[in-house]
Design a protein around this nucleic acid. Structure first.
Length: 427
RNA sequence: GGAGAGGUGGCAGAGCGGCUGAAUGCGUCGGUCUCGAAAACCGAUAUGCCUGAAAGGGUAUCGAGGGUUCAAAUCCCUCCCUCUCCGCCA
């Protein structure tokens, strides 16, 4: 959520930003709603002022008739205050609604463009391997090595669910363990988060769990509760300090969280239908940080560097993308993606993503910071980044490390946890 | 799940219908004293919003929501959370 005061002072900038972001909104309408809200708030305050005055006067007024007059006025004020309060609540809801559709501001250096075509590749690491044998995609590789069972997934749960089996299980756990160890060494606090979160937390992070249209709603909701299955630990980690005032001296707070992620993938029907690339449930190790506005840009680069370090250690070639304005998503001020080389698709595929959300999430989650002994608070900046998203990491891993005989070599860093150098059926 | 207790400022802990944003203590910050420090003493010390050039003024907030009342931290109801005991379970 943007600061309404900022929107009021910079309507032209905000509108232009929305255009760059491919978000069709009427900033003027939001401002109109806010004017209305302010007018009602002001009237409400005047009534409250008189009410307080009356409650000071009444106990002092000894003359019964005069006292009764005051009490009568108080009664009518109570009614008026009740009506105003209801009006105010409506007006505030309208403002929230109007403000809620505005995306975050954008980093001045982010590439401007309407669609992913305009994303900027800023560097590559590693050479895509040249295979001297016919390559297989991860589905073929994993099924032939008895590492995954999509049919059982479909039968037990539904399309795009899966069972991992045998070494794939060890690989997934190894990826989690490896990422966790790296991040702990970097000073990140490890956390295992709930896999469910309240609707209001989802909204604070920037999701729209109340989307009434099941064809576009991105998250699973739990019937008869205000809970959703989380789409990422970003949700739970960000919610962890909701409604708190953090001490500046303790910032940045850096977490690395493990959770399952559940996504309806609404809006992506028929895309990447094959395999693990786009599934409804996966395991992810996610970085999340709370910091001061001064710290966020450097911290964003730190998180990106960690993501790269992890893929380098896994010996997976990748490229780094600076996401363009039209492809940023609501909360991000700037976003970098890592796309790993995936031989099966003959191209790069997104494996991680890191966003600086500045104060956009913090404002709605009401997470502020202050310095001890100093007056005033500010909203913190929040950042998130993928350490390892298991399903997609597995895709890249088995496809890149496949051998001519259909076996898969295990990256050195994972061998301690997988317990072998090569995955080969019968081996 | 059952029984009881409780949720107040950074912390501890009063208040139990009216001038209480809230006593007191601790902590923190500033000052006096000191060569320096400790101690002692003095003063300051929540957040949002409105208004004002500023000083200041106003308003809301005592777990959340609702109710009673001219007036609620204080009374009533609902919910949430914490603690103790019992039961159950991985």
């Amino acid at each position: 959520m943007l600061d309404i005061q900022y929107v009021r002072e910079n309507p032209v900038l905000v509108q232009a930003n929305c255009v760059n972001r491919q978000v069709k909104v009427d900033v003027a309408a939001a401002l109109g709603a806010d004017d209305h809200r302010r007018a009602i708030a002001h009237r409400t305050q005047l009534v409250q002022e008189r009410q307080n005055e009356l409650s000071r006067l009444i106990p002092r007024e000894k003359e019964p008739a005069a006292r009764q007059t005051l009490v009568t006025e108080g009664k009518s004020l109570r009614e008026e205050a009740g009506k105003l309060e209801a009006e105010l609540r409506e007006a505030e809801a309208a403002v929230r609604l109007a403000l809620g559709v505005l995306p975050n501001l954008t980093h001045p250096d982010a590439p401007v463009g309407a669609d992913p075509e305009s994303n900027l590749e800023i560097r590559r690491w590693g050479e895509p391997r040249v295979f001297d044998f016919p390559i297989k995609d991860h589905v073929t590789l994993m099924e032939s090595n008895d590492l995954v069972d999509f049919e059982a997934g479909a039968m037990v749960t539904g399309q795009k669910f899966y069972f991992l089996k045998n070494e794939a299980v060890l690989l997934e756990l190894a990826l989690v363990q490896f990422a966790m160890m790296r991040l702990v060494a970097r000073g990140y606090t490890p956390v295992i988060t709930p896999d469910l979160a309240r609707v209001e937390v989802l909204e604070g992070i920037g999701f729209q769990p109340r989307d009434p249209d099941p064809d576009t709603r991105q998250v699973y909701t739990i019937a008869q509760t205000d809970l959703c299955l989380v789409a990422t630990a970003e949700i739970t980690l960000g919610g962890m300090h909701k409604d708190q005032v953090l001490d500046n001296a303790r910032l940045p707070l850096k977490y690395v969280g493990l959770s399952h992620c559940f996504r309806t993938e609404a809006g992506a029907p028929g895309r990447d239908t094959r395999g693990l690339y786009r599934v409804h449930q996966f395991t992810k190790v996610e970085m999340f940080a709370f910091c001061t506005p001064e710290q966020s840009e450097a911290l964003h680069l730190e998180i990106l560097a960690i993501e790269e370090e992890i893929f380098q250690a896994l010996e997976l070639p990748y490229r780094v993308i600076d996401t363009c304005t039209g492809d940023l998503g609501g909360p991000a001020y700037r976003k970098y993606d890592l796309e790993a080389w995936m031989p099966g698709r003959g191209g790069y595929g997104e494996v991680t993503s890191t966003s600086n959300c500045t104060d956009f999430q913090a404002r709605r989650l009401n997470i502020r910071s202050k310095s001890a002994g100093q007056k005033g608070t500010r909203f913190v900046h929040t950042l998130n980044g993928t350490a390892i998203s298991c399903a997609r990491a597995l895709v890249a891993l088995v496809e890149n490390h496949q051998q001519a005989d259909g076996s898969i070599t295990v990256p050195t860093v994972l061998r301690p946890w997988v317990g072998k150098d090569i995955i080969r059926r019968g081996a």
